[in-house]
Design a protein around this nucleic acid. Structure first.
Lengths: 211, 211
DNA sequence: TAGATTGTTAATCGATTAACAATC
DNA sequence: TAGATTGTTAATCGATTAACAATC
């Protein structure tokens, strides 16, 4: 039976399952056992079965799992079958690349607004979305009710805009800044993308890969 | 005494310590206790002390830790005081933003080459680095000995170029593609940046934040 | 010296792995 | 039915937290 409180490690593996199952589907594979899936993903069969059983009984004894069905179930669990409105703040190099490069629609979101402080950028179009002034943030949010904010601004400005966005009803942050949202607003959902942390970790690994 | 085998959770916290200590330093704070640092970072004092003691005895009983010294020690552990040559493959939206946006020099690397398959991009300059053809990869690597490759290419091309790069002496990958390097080359150091996984995780959290 | 805080050992907690009965 | 593979419980492993003697 489905558990109510799923641990973080399990949640973080779900997108990977989703991707791998998508590939299997694309390869025309219709069924797979926990053993075979674990082998392909570098996990253990136990872990795979434990993970899935957090959410329900998706397999069949003696058969395994139906690839398409299982992927669709995981997609549902991840909430990919609905679209939540999202806005992006800070359309610099990074913000622009995120807006252009990420297929929000495939991952549960609809990017509906881009906001910038720098006057020179306002009015430009990115992915058919006009860049608006942050001054229009209040009005835009009251009209369109975005639930997600993508923060692509420097740490300095992040504190005040985060507060503003939370007041405007934002429930989740995809945070590319170094401002620590969770520390100050524990009730909001946050996913951090810290490039520099990732790069430093890699530096560490290269220094110690002999061990 | 320093341990030889440090666990992944500890390693992943190091960059965060490094950042927080940098901020404290910037604020003119010269000493800090594990208790105070843990409070600011949302950890426990025990964890902070355990983490640091993996690498040495950096504190002093009754006093705490010297902020500047501790940050510098962690920087050394992360290997930020040396520069390893790095190249970036795939100068599309994302690759260009990474090249322009990331301060490689602050995190242990020197970006020395950009490579592209698409003829139209070759010759362009990004951050004073010319975009080269992937055909010149072999020659460039034999001359410049990069240790890190930043992969900003689609999954399809990643397999073959990864193999090529490993043969050319690349020891680490900063992997923005969905190709699973570790599964196929377990001896190489890899840090994955999977935007879509991160976004899907956030979608999950927004669906279940009531729990 | 007395107070504070570390370094480190022991206890707890949680996640992963192993085992196996249930069942398709 | 026999073989395969799940769902699930129990055992193990590892990471976090608590406790406290050492010491500045």
């Amino acid at each position: 039976m489905p558990k109510s409180n799923i641990s973080t490690p399990v949640i973080r593996r779900l997108p990977r399952y989703y991707r791998f199952l998508g590939e299997l589907k694309a390869q025309g594979i219709t069924r797979i056992s926990s053993g075979e899936l674990s082998r392909r993903m570098g996990l253990t069969a136990s872990q795979v079965r434990q993970d899935f059983n957090c959410f329900g009984e998706f397999g069949q004894q003696g058969y395994g799992y139906n690839v398409e069905l299982l992927q669709s179930e995981i997609g549902d669990i991840l909430g990919l079958n609905r679209l939540r409105n999202a806005i992006l703040i800070g359309v610099g190099n990074l913000g622009k690349a995120v807006a252009q490069h990420i297929r929000f629609n495939s991952f549960g979101f609809q990017l509906i607004g881009l906001f910038e402080e720098r006057e020179s950028l306002i009015g430009q179009m990115v992915k058919n979305i006009p860049i608006r002034s942050v001054k229009d943030l209040d009005e835009f949010c009251r009209e369109n009710h975005p639930e997600l904010a993508v923060l692509c601004i420097p740490k300095e400005g992040a504190q005040s805009i985060t507060e503003q966005l939370i007041k405007l009803g934002i429930k989740g942050f995809w945070n590319f800044s170094h401002y620590d949202i969770t520390l100050n607003y524990p009730d909001v959902q946050v996913e951090n993308v810290h490039f520099s942390d990732s790069l430093m970790t890699l530096s560490y690994k290269l220094n110690n890969n002999n061990k």
